[in-house]
Design a protein around this nucleic acid. Structure first.
Length: 491
RNA sequence: GUCCCCUUCGUCUAGGGGCCUAGGACAUCUCCCUUUCACGGAGAAGACACGAGUUCAAAUCUCGUAGGGGACGCCA
């Protein structure tokens, strides 16, 4: 046991983008694997043909890649071709394996063909509801001879395959997160393992695959807790070794209901688009149900791998707090070095069509001016917008400053001073001198001095320090904007 | 309805019989820094769901109650 290499998997069903809950599940599995020097496997659970699409699979793979949760076995992110010794890793391509396993169960009398109609099933459910008892399907075909079933099949009748649930015995699950969980013997009835279409169902595939892929530990969402009983029965029937399970609590929205689309952004893709860093999303989501033994709140992937252990996993549900995510994001963002930060911001800035100088020094300087204000990459767009060449709109909030009697004089003095400067850009020292000069000659000081100048520079009375802003703007732009403000005061 | 799981500041959490006058983080508020807005720094306020029991001692163990969540599919 001690020598068994750790093998864990993340097994999403490809129906849309990766949800943040899925991201957390994937992350925990990944961290567990890396912490123990084990393997992290990606398996695609696409047996629901109605909902699974290849497009979704690509999206999920892209999201996982974005998060940096790279798998050691599974579909190749680019070609989608499987790599690893236990493939295929897409359940839709493992049908022969499931069929063979189902056959094994049928032959040994542990499963049987069931010819019940949807109406019959529904009737039983209704009846059970009315009687206030646990819903269990009682199939009349449980004891039908295999020969008879086969002949009906021969005649073209359709049948599902049901597993004969062993009754009258409790199952004990030693859950890695919840401790001992006892499932009563009659919790489930005979359940379907093969649909009448021949397609296997989740619980069956999952058990077979985890066994065949030599999975040692499974961390998955709480909604699978009761599925575990079915899977335990299957493991027993096959004589396979069961992995250890840990059931994670679900993530809630602010209204304490299960996090869903109506709560706003819930997919990793949304967060990527809104300028969140993958390291921040990983960090935040990790803290929703796990805590660092060192009490750290800001953690890198390396930190998490080093510190991760399943016994610090929390069994109670957690509310997704957008505010804290934003804080985690801004903290990671500000810690990035200039070159890297610009690399991340670039796509947002160019998507917005901002034409900014290409000069590397200019860009790094601009970044430093705005760094303390960044909470998400997307913010850079509005922050940088005043740095384009030419005029910018003068905002509503600027009006108060424009109405001050001294403003006109200040802006005129500012414009004249800039005009008198040599060179295309002012540096910080030049600006400071110039500013002192205006103060001395005009006698205006404090906000009556600074706000009008700021409006003349960026069109807004508030924002980043002028001494950082002004050196980023070309003299021509400075002059044009000052003139625009003067025009507005006149008019 | 039946079964399973969960319950510490508004939120994420630490804690696992005495270190608890319950610690940290986000958010909130106050002050400092700052000639603006932020960043940063200091501080304030704020929780053991309820009721029994076990014990010299309970946030911590047990049982009930309430509330929340999940499962009960030929979904995953």
């Amino acid at each position: 046991m001690a020598n068994t290499p750790v093998r864990v998997r993340f097994a999403p069903s490809p129906t849309g983008y990766l949800h943040v809950g899925g991201a957390r599940t994937a992350l925990y599995n990944y961290l567990f694997a890396k912490h123990h020097g084990g393997e992290f496997i990606l398996r695609v659970e696409d047996t629901d043909q109605a909902r699974s699409t290849e497009e979704s699979m690509r999206m999920q793979i892209a999201d996982l890649q974005w998060l940096g949760l790279n798998w050691d076995e599974g579909p190749d992110p680019l070609t989608l071709k499987d790599f690893g010794p236990y493939g295929p890793y897409r359940q839709s391509q493992r049908l022969a394996i499931y069929k063979e396993h189902a056959e094994r169960l049928i032959q040994s009398g542990k499963a049987y063909y069931c010819f019940m109609t949807d109406e019959e099933l529904e009737q039983q459910r209704q009846q059970a509801m009315r009687d206030g008892v646990n819903i269990q399907i009682q199939s009349p075909y449980r004891d039908q001879s295999l020969a008879e079933s086969l002949s009906r099949l021969q005649n073209g009748e359709k049948a599902s395959v049901r597993f004969k649930a062993p009754a009258s015995r409790d199952f004990l699950l030693k859950d890695l997160v919840r401790g001992d969980v006892t499932f009563p013997s009659d919790m489930v009835g005979d359940f379907v393992i093969l649909r009448s279409s021949g397609m296997p169902v989740y619980n069956f595939c999952c058990a077979v695959d985890d066994a065949l892929m030599k999975i040692t530990h499974v961390f998955r969402a709480e909604e699978h807790l009761s599925n575990t009983l079915r899977q335990m029965m299957l493991y027993e029937a096959f004589g396979y070794i069961m992995p250890e399970f840990g059931h994670l609590s679900i993530i809630l929205g602010p209204d304490r209901q299960k996090l869903s689309k109506r709560h706003g952004a819930t997919s990793c893709h949304d967060y990527a688009q809104n300028g969140y860093l993958p390291e921040a999303l990983n960090n935040f989501v990790a803290l929703l149900g796990w805590s660092s033994p060192e009490g750290a709140e800001i953690l890198s992937m390396e930190d998490m791998i080093r510190q991760f252990s399943h016994d610090r996993l929390n069994a109670s549900p957690a509310v997704f707090d957008e505010q804290k995510l934003l804080w985690v994001n801004s903290t990671h963002l500000r810690a990035l070095d200039g070159v890297e930060l610009w690399r991340r911001i670039e796509p947002f800035v160019s998507a917005a069509g901002l034409e900014l100088p290409k000069d590397q020094n200019w860009r790094l300087q601009a970044l430093e001016a705005f760094r303390p204000k960044l909470t998400a990459l997307k913010d850079a767009v509005e922050l940088m917008r005043p740095l384009v060449e030419g005029l910018v709109p003068i905002t509503e909030e600027a009006q108060e400053a424009l109405n001050w009697p001294s403003t006109r004089m200040v802006v005129e003095a500012w414009k004249n001073a800039v005009e008198g400067m040599a060179g295309d850009y002012l540096d910080e020292a030049q600006f400071m001198n110039l500013q002192n000069e205006i103060q001395n000659t005009s006698g205006v000081k404090g906000k009556h001095l600074f706000m009008p100048i700021r409006v003349a520079v960026i069109g807004k009375p508030q924002g980043t320090e002028l001494k950082m802003l002004v050196p980023l703007l070309h003299k021509k732009t400075l002059l044009a904007r000052a003139q625009a403000v003067l025009d507005q005061i006149k008019g």
